[in-house]
Design a binder for these strands. Structure first.
Lengths: 202, 202
DNA sequence: CCTCTTCAGTACCGATCGGTTCAGAAGTGC
DNA sequence: GCACTTCTGAACCGATCGGTACTGAAGAGG
């Protein structure tokens, strides 16, 4: 069999799909799912509606792909935090990463996973539900990480890892709202440090 | 001069404006400003578009009035918390009130002041900015309350009341996001209690 | 009863929504 | 060069958006 991994028959795409997705992600991040019209999106992506539909499916799928890109890009701090050696370091890296990602100059303030769609009308329900799942998955992964920390003796044995995870995610979500309200990086850094002050002793 | 405080010339209004506003508030709370169409709103209010425009102005003013009603109704816990005698009691009442208000059965989950409009397109900017101002005013009032507490010796003199206020508002905002994600009242109560654990000693 | 004012409902406004169709241009493999 | 495939752009789709104009009906004051 011929493994034609690089056989793009026909006219090749005239734009950088990665770059276009990055632009779309920004628009969703800034205006939310419902607030971002196809005109907003495609004009920011520099392509026409037809090209967008051919490359990404429809608005909903474009949003999903933008969210994936967001997860691995601006929200990549979460994955990195999870790999820190101790629970305390995980928590610190997670919150500090959230503060930085939510107040990065040149990027929209806040978190796509929060303000992308928190409440929505009927046509935006799927996007909203996708974000709910996204956030809850993050909480679950934090919980799993802290459960391991309890098992390893890195956290007191009477610690409830699920509560710890939800507490951390709650503060991160709050930081996202605060960033969207105009809070500065310094202000939120202080908030994060205060939230970490009552972390259980190792 | 004739003080005609009760002289409704012409045909009186055929619906209860208060009840209608309550219904509108619920729709905004559940679907957000952009996600709530005039059709959604008026059909929930039980009146026609014409009556709505005559009674409330337009969609934006209706939203503002719904927000006022929300402030004095479901979000009334904030004002009540501010009147607690000690800073610790203020903080406790504030967070516990937020948990209860964000997970009240029969009401939409979450907080109108957060999910009403966090990110929006051009036509929803005014509503979004109104909510930003609403949240920041809450933070400022918490800050003023804690500044008083420092003056009264109720908080250590080296305490920064603004940081304390922003910390509390951040946790409350996070609780709103978590409630919108499906977190239960019990789960959020645990989060609130954990957030209160590192409160400065009186 | 008559007049006046405001009500309520419908039909309608231009604009925009997300999504599609179609014609033609453009690049690739033979 | 030819056949084939896919891209691009614009025109267009029905539906819905927020907001109005207009027509009568209905209550209040004289």
């Amino acid at each position: 069999m011929k493994t034609r991994q690089q056989a793009p028959i026909g006219r090749p795409r005239g734009f950088d799909a990665d770059e276009a997705l990055e632009r779309a992600m920004r628009v969703f991040w800034e205006q939310g799912y419902e607030g971002a019209s196809l005109t907003d999106l495609t004009s920011a992506m520099g392509i026409t509606r037809t090209s967008m539909y051919a490359a990404f499916g429809n608005k909903e799928e474009l949003f999903r792909k933008a969210l994936e890109r967001y997860t691995e890009g601006p929200a990549g701090y979460a994955d990195r935090a999870m790999r820190e050696p101790t629970a305390r370091q995980v928590a610190t890296a997670f919150l500090h990463g959230a503060v930085r990602a939510n107040t990065r100059p040149g990027c929209p303030a806040g978190c796509l996973g929060v303000q992308g769609s928190l409440a929505a009308g009927e046509p935006g329900r799927n996007a909203r539900d996708a974000l709910i799942a996204w956030r809850n998955e993050g909480t679950a992964r934090l919980g799993a990480r802290f459960r391991r920390a309890v098992d390893e003796g890195d956290l007191p044995p009477d610690t409830d890892p699920a509560v710890l995870a939800r507490y951390l995610m709650t503060v991160a979500n709050g930081i996202a709202v605060q960033a969207a309200s105009g809070a500065t990086q310094e202000e939120l850094k202080q908030v994060a440090d205060m939230a970490l002050r009552n972390w259980p002793p190792t």
